[in-house]
């Protein structure tokens, strides 16, 4: 800053304005914000790499297991297995981004600058939520489809992989017929046939992406309520990981009655493609998804209320 430059220069005049600053400008602004910080690229990159990479590793392991031990073929849900890393780990990664989208404004103080530029807070909040939802949904869908295709490619040699383009038949049951020799698996007879339809697979792949997007919105809402990055992320982890573990430790008759009311359950239901493969104590795929959606909508609404009502 060597020179003192100011008053001799004047800014050119602005074109006259009509109308009113509104959602359109706020959407453009929020997209600029999201694309102009590194944390967005780190989070989305990590989402893709972890979900697809770990999915491929898991499916690679399954490929060996299916070949070595044909009994495992019965009821093998190639779709769900390929998506588990996405909806178990990926949800957390995108949840961090969801929380950061709003908490980073508070931790840096940017919120005061943002709300001075655009003081209609409902518009700012809506724009932020819309932009984040769209970006998250797009990347979740990409991740889900790529993880699915890569995962199925890993088990292609076993002919047990799921398909989006046709129905796949897998053995329904494995009947134990005798112990294997040293170092070889038990002898089994495969019985019955389960048909995994392409439409079920599509529902699982798309639905899992929707589930992860909803979890990201839960994190966004918690971010708006808590306003601290660490606190918001810890709460997301508590809700999605710790509470399920605590529930698992409860007596069966309690656990079976309450587990369907928590937001994590939908991921384990929507990704199932094998008939009867889901936990019978949970609702079916879309009703269970509505539970997660209720958490997301509820937390977003509370977040919106607090975003508007509290001093910035």
């Amino acid at each position: 800053m060597a020179t003192i430059t100011t008053s001799d220069r004047r800014l050119p005049a602005l074109p006259p304005a009509t109308g009113r600053a509104g959602l359109r400008g706020a959407l453009a602004s929020e997209f600029t914000k999201l694309r102009s910080v590194r944390s967005t690229y780190w989070a989305l990159g990590a989402l893709l790499i972890v979900s697809i990479g770990v999915g491929a590793l898991v499916m690679g392991g399954e490929s060996g297991s299916l070949t070595h031990n044909p009994g495992n073929k019965a009821g093998f849900d190639g779709t769900q297995v390929s998506l588990i890393p996405f909806f178990e780990i990926g949800q957390l990664i995108i949840g961090v981004l969801g929380a950061l989208t709003i908490t980073s404004e508070y931790s840096t103080g940017m919120i005061r600058t943002s709300l001075t530029a655009m003081p209609r807070r409902g518009v700012v909040y809506a724009a932020k939520a819309i932009v984040f939802t769209c970006v998250t949904l797009v990347f979740s869908l990409i991740t889900s489809f790529v993880a699915f295709f890569v995962g199925q490619a890993m088990v292609a040699s076993t002919r047990e992989g799921a398909s989006l383009f046709g129905n796949v038949k897998i053995p329904a049951n494995a009947i134990f017929t005798g112990p294997g020799g040293p170092g070889s698996p038990p002898k089994v007879t495969l019985q019955g046939i389960d048909v995994i339809t392409a439409s079920t697979v599509l529902r699982a792949v798309v639905g899992t992406a929707l589930f992860v997007t909803l979890v990201a919105l839960i994190a966004f809402g918690l971010g708006a309520i808590i306003r601290h990055t660490a606190g918001a992320i810890a709460t997301v982890i508590g809700l999605m990981f710790i509470i399920p573990v605590v529930i698992q430790a409860l007596p069966d008759n309690w656990r079976q009655d309450i587990m369907r009311f928590f937001p994590d359950a939908a991921g384990r239901v929507i990704s199932v493609t094998v008939p009867g493969g889901a936990n019978p104590h949970l609702w079916s795929s879309w009703p269970q998804m509505i539970v997660t959606a209720c958490y997301a909508v509820g937390l977003l609404a509370i977040g919106a209320y607090m975003f508007r009502k509290r001093d910035a």
Binding site: L14, P15, A17, A21, R24, G25, A26, A28, S29, E30, T32, K33, S36, V37, R38, S39, S104, E105, T108, G109, M110, I111, R112, T113, S114, T116, A117, M118, V124
Partner: peptide, 26 residues
Amino acid sequence: LDAKAVHGGRSARNHLLCLAQTNSLP
């Protein structure tokens, strides 16, 4: 109000751009 109330990870240009966009400024 506070010169440090910006997201430090954002470039100066993008910081100003995201503000200008809210008010539909060129």
